[in-house]
């Protein structure tokens, strides 16, 4: 008698072969597209590319060398090439937001943005890496099958039930966990811990480098900043628990007291509310570029496409437009 159960490898293959509808990735596509568009418009308006992405001999603030990949092949970071890439990124981000030209517009945006931000390591930061990592995953799935102009052109409807591969969404969930988890455990300063009086957030707000305005008010609400420090550190370092939450939700029919306890509430919402609050505070108090909007865009991936469809369908009904959105189904992850 042979064992009918698939091998561990085949179960893994089946897991990464899962299909789902495209709502979560469509929302990420719109979030990422808008984030890059806003970033590029601000750069163009303030003429920042002439400062950071143009060589010193052409008016920039430092020597940039020959650039990477595409820039090197096209002769180095001349003002003409830099501005071509800037406008290409700006225009393609509009196409990505609208969901026009499928993977082509995502590829063009990825290549132009990647080559721009890697021109100058001094001005590139975590937000740029989150943006390009998200664009890679959008490129590797068909992120314009629904809620896009492409979908309307093909089906004469704005939404579609067409299935896409789910693994890019799974990898983006892993990306979120890595991003928060490793930044949390690298917060090794004494100020993040009791020996420094949980005062990290207070002192970060006092740095003129990143503050949007003067934060001397923080001295009068110091205990609140201490609570903020503790919650931020615990929430970030505890990010791997999100994987456990998702695993337990996905295997809710199995036994186990811990699993039952985890599934008593939808802990994804607890996680998301803390994260959204933290990022909104960063947006209000600090100037750190597009880190908050692009990271919040990744949150769309934590919830299943069918859930987004049901929630937005209900919202549509409430707004009086009517919707035939189906109930939440039980697809994996």
């Amino acid at each position: 008698m042979t064992d009918a159960r698939p091998s561990r490898w085949n179960r893994l293959v089946a897991f990464w072969d899962a299909r789902e509808t495209g709502e979560s990735m469509a929302l990420l596509r719109i979030g990422a597209g808008l984030t890059v568009f806003a970033t590029m418009v601000l750069l163009i308006y303030r003429e920042i590319p002439d400062v950071i992405w143009v060589d010193f001999k052409d008016g920039g603030y430092r020597s940039l060398g020959s650039g990477q990949h595409l820039v090197r092949r096209l002769g180095g970071p001349s003002p003409g090439l830099t501005w071509t890439l800037v406008w290409t990124a700006c225009i393609s981000s509009v196409f990505v937001t609208l969901g026009l030209f499928g993977r082509v517009s995502i590829f063009v945006l990825l290549v132009s943005y990647l080559n721009l931000h890697r021109l100058n390591g001094e001005t590139s930061g975590s937000s740029d890496i989150v943006i390009t990592n998200a664009l890679w995953m959008l490129l590797l799935t068909r992120a314009t099958v629904t809620w896009s102009v492409d979908c309307y052109i093909k089906n004469r409807r704005w939404s579609s039930d067409e299935l896409i591969t789910a693994w890019p969404r799974y990898l983006l969930i892993l990306q979120i966990v890595l991003l928060y988890g490793t930044t949390g455990i690298q917060k090794v300063s004494a100020y993040w811990l009791p020996i420094g009086g949980w005062s990290a957030l207070y002192y970060i707000l006092q740095q003129p480098t990143w503050g949007r305005f003067d934060h001397s008010w923080a001295a009068y609400v110091f205990p609140l900043t201490q609570i903020g420090t503790l919650v931020t550190w615990l929430w970030e370092a505890g990010a791997p628990l999100l994987l456990l939450v998702l695993y337990y939700r996905n295997t809710a029919d199995r036994p186990g007291r811990l699993r039952r306890w985890f599934n008593r509430w939808d802990l994804r919402w607890v996680w998301a509310v803390i994260g959204i609050t933290m990022h909104l505070m960063i947006l209000v108090f600090m100037v750190v570029g597009p880190f908050s909007p692009i990271t919040l865009s990744l949150y769309f991936c934590v919830f299943r496409p069918a859930e987004w469809r049901a929630w937005l369908g209900k919202l549509g009904q409430r707004l009086g437009r009517g919707s035939n959105a189906p109930a939440v189904d039980e697809d994996p992850a």
Binding site: L178, T183, K187, I204
Partner: peptide, 8 residues
Amino acid sequence: SWRMFSAP
């Protein structure tokens, strides 16, 4: 590279 605000 996720070393963000590791220390004030």
